[in-house]
Simulated scan of single mutants.
Amino acid sequence: MKRATSEKKSVDGDALALRNASRKVGFQVTIACAIVVVVILVAIVLFIVSEVSLPVLLEPAADPTILDINAFKLLRASAVLGAGLIVLAGLLSWFVTRRAVKPLGDALRVQRSFVADASHELRTPLTILDARLQILQRGLPVGDPSTEVVAELRRDTETLIRVVNDLLESAEGAAGQDGQAGDGSELGPAIDAAVASMDLIAARASVKIDVTQPAGIWTSLSQMNVQRCLVILLDNAIRYAPEGSSVTVDVSVERKTVTIAVRDRGPGIRGIDPSRIFDRFAHAGSAADGGSSGTGFGIGLSLVRDIVVRKGGTVGVVSSSPTGTAIAFTLPVTRP
Rank of each mutant, 00 (worst) to 15 (best):
K311M: 12
F278T: 07
A287P: 04
V309N: 12
G298K: 00
S292M: 15
G268I: 00
T259A: 15
R310C: 15
D264K: 06
A282E: 12
P322N: 05
R265W: 01
T325P: 09
G294K: 01
V315Y: 13
A261R: 05
K256S: 14
T323A: 13
V262M: 06
G312H: 13
V315C: 11
I260A: 02
I307V: 09
V309F: 11
F297T: 11
D279A: 11
T295E: 06
G291R: 04
K311G: 15
T325I: 02
A287L: 12
D289M: 06
T259W: 05
L303K: 11
G268H: 03
S286N: 08
I299P: 00
K256L: 08
V308K: 01
S320G: 03
G271A: 05
T323W: 01
T259K: 12
G313N: 02
T314W: 05
G298H: 02
D306R: 04
G271V: 02
T323N: 12
R263C: 10
R263S: 15
T314M: 06
S320P: 04
F278P: 02
G291L: 06
G312Q: 13
V308E: 08
D306Y: 00
L301S: 01
P322C: 01
G300M: 04
S302G: 14
R276S: 06
R270S: 15
A326D: 09
T314G: 11
S286Q: 11
G298F: 04
P274W: 13
D273M: 04
S275N: 08
S286W: 15
